[in-house]
Design a protein around this nucleic acid. Structure first.
Lengths: 148, 148
DNA sequence: ATATATTTGTTGATTTTACAACAAGAGGAG
DNA sequence: CTCCTCTTGTTGTAAAATCAACAAATATAT
C-alpha cells in the first residue's frame, strides 16, 4: 500500500506534467499554451459553448479560461456571439482559422492519446477509465469538505 | 475515444490538483507545502536518502527539492550527515521532530489513499496501477523525444 | 417594477512550478 | 597529481496556476 501511494501520486503528477508539456510542445509553432489548446479542442469537439461551459468541461480555473478567451479572440481563433461588454452567457464559436487549428489539435491529441495507452487491452482501458473517474470523485468529495 | 480523451486528461489534471490541495490542507497547521510533505513522507518511508534520490523518488524538480531541504533543515525536520558546503551525496535523515511529523503524514496520506480508492476491487486496483505505470512510461517516451 | 440574491465573468496579487545558467564536488585517464 | 568530464546541487528568473476580491448580468421574490 505504501508502495502504491508512492507510485500513485507520483505517477499522476508526472503524467499531468507530461500531458501539459506535450500540449504546449506540439503547438509551440503556433504559440498556443496548454489552456489555449484545451479551449480550442473542446470548442472543436463540442461546438459553441459559453465561457462557463468551457471552464466546466476543461475543469480549469475560470480566471485562466477568461484570459485564454481574450487571447484566442484577439488572435482570431474564436468569436463571441454577443456584443455585450462582458461575455455573459455568450456563445463562443471557432472562426474558420480556429476550426482549422481545432481539427489539427484534435488529431494530434487523439493520436497522442492512442500512443499513451498503447499496450492496454480494451478491457483494461475501460477499467482504467472507470477507476480514474471513481478516484477523482472520491478525492473531490474530500476536498469539498475543506470549504465548509 | 474523444470522450475518453476529455475525461482522461481532464481527470488526471483534476486528481493531480486535488492531491496537492489535500496535502497542503492537511498540513496547514504546520505550514508545510506539498513538496515539503513529499520529502518528509519519503524520508520516513525509505529512511535516509541523498538529495538526488529524494528528487528521483518524488519526481519533483531538483530545484524544488533543494529549496525544500533548506526549509526542512532550517525548521529542524531533517539533518544532513555531511558538513560540506553543498550537500553532495550527503544522506538526509529525519530528526526526532521530523520522524514524528513523518509518521503523522504517512498515516494521513495512507488514509487518504484508502479513501480515494474506496469502491475499487483489489483486482481493478491492480489493473489501474499497472495501467497508470504503462501510460506514464509511454508519455515519458514521447516527451523524451522533444529534447533530441 | 424594484430590491435582493445568485450566477457568471474579470482583474490583480500571490504562490507554485518549471527552466536554465551556473557552481561544486566526484571520478577517471593520462 | 592535474586535467577533463560527468554528476549533483544551487540560485535566479520566468511562466503558470491559484486564489480572492470585485463587477456585471441575470434570476427571483415581493
Amino acid at each position: 500500500m505504501e508502495e502504491r501511494f508512492k507510485t500513485f501520486t507520483v505517477l499522476i503528477a508526472k503524467i499531468s506534467r507530461n500531458i501539459r508539456k506535450i500540449k504546449t510542445e506540439e503547438m509551440s509553432e503556433m504559440n498556443l499554451k496548454s489552456p489555449h489548446v484545451s479551449c480550442l479542442y473542446y470548442l472543436f469537439k463540442a461546438g459553441a459553448l459559453t465561457a462557463k461551459e468551457l471552464s466546466d468541461v476543461c475543469e480549469e480555473d475560470k480566471a485562466a479560461i477568461s484570459r485564454s478567451i481574450d487571447y484566442l479572440e484577439k488572435e482570431g481563433y474564436l468569436q463571441c456571439d454577443s456584443q455585450a461588454k462582458k461575455r455573459y452567457r455568450a456563445h463562443l464559436s471557432l472562426t474558420e482559422k480556429g476550426e482549422k487549428v481545432g481539427r489539427f489539435i484534435a488529431d494530434k491529441i487523439d493520436n497522442i492519446l492512442a500512443l499513451a495507452s498503447e499496450g492496454l487491452t480494451e478491457e483494461n482501458r475501460t477499467i482504467f477509465y472507470q477507476s480514474l473517474t471513481l478516484i477523482s470523485d472520491n478525492l473531490q468529495k474530500i476536498c469539498n469538505e475543506y470549504g465548509e
